[in-house]
């Protein structure tokens, strides 16, 4: 599913959650980007966190127990 150069997006219940996750990743030095939720993915808080696919497991480990997220979705070639 995650080809080279692909990304994963993390979806959150609200923008507060997304911003909290952003802060956790920033402090941990994990490269990430807060982006508008792509149209084909359902969630409406407006923003999601995009990370490179190989970083997915690290992101999960960093966020677990600190902020809840609603799902993940692969994002090809972006």
């Amino acid at each position: 599913m995650t080809t080279k150069g692909g990304h994963v997006v993390f979806l959150f219940p609200s923008v507060s959650h997304a911003l909290k996750a952003e802060k956790i990743l920033k402090e941990a030095g994990v490269t990430h980007k807060l982006i508008p939720v792509p149209r084909h993915i359902s969630s409406d808080c407006g923003v999601c966190l995009r990370v490179e696919a190989p970083l997915r497991d690290e992101v999960v480990a960093r966020l677990r127990g600190r902020v809840t997220w609603e799902g993940e979705a692969p994002l090809e070639g972006s």
Binding site: S16, L34, P36, G46
Partner: peptide, 20 residues
């Protein structure tokens, strides 16, 4: 804040988040 994904909405969201 929280009403869109554009950068001004995110900036507003961050203001609220940081106040919290």
């Amino acid at each position: 804040p929280g009403r869109s994904g554009h950068r001004r909405a995110v900036m507003a969201g961050r203001i609220i988040f940081e106040a919290r």
